[in-house]
Nucleic acid binder design. Structure first.
Length: 106
DNA sequence: GGGGTGACCCAGT
DNA sequence: TACTGGGCCACCC
């Protein structure tokens, strides 16, 4: 697998996030797993780190952890935006069964 | 070159 | 449902 620079990896992550349809979500782990296929890197923590630093430019609220929880300090904002798009929440968390999305599967 | 850190994940309690 | 501990891996000082 062709090694990619951090900059390229960041771009890949942001591209995937932008491709998430309204009202749908992807987990950090899912993104990492998906990118492992094309970038040779798989690290949920790295994805989280990237989102924390560069997430402001993309629909970051469509990215949640595997439990359907929003990032610390942004729960209110994220919940509001996702609901506005038709997202399904359950007990203050995203209903992963209903909203989880995968680039190829849809 | 070594060690701390995190918008994670999973299994167990 | 909530909390805990261990594993993980790339980033950054």
């Amino acid at each position: 697998m062709r090694p990619v620079t951090r900059e390229e990896y960041v771009d890949e992550v942001l591209t995937v996030v932008e491709s998430i349809p309204p009202g749908r979500v992807m987990s950090y782990g899912a993104i990492a797993e998906y990118l492992a296929d094309r970038s040779g890197r798989s690290s949920p923590r790295l994805v989280g780190n990237i989102m924390a630093r560069y997430g402001g430019a993309v629909p970051w609220y469509r990215v949640v952890n595997a439990q359907g929880r929003f990032p610390p300090g942004h729960e209110v904002e994220a919940r509001r935006r996702l609901l506005a798009e038709g997202g399904v929440l359950k007990g203050g968390r995203v209903d992963m069964a209903a909203c989880a999305w995968w680039p190829e599967g849809d």
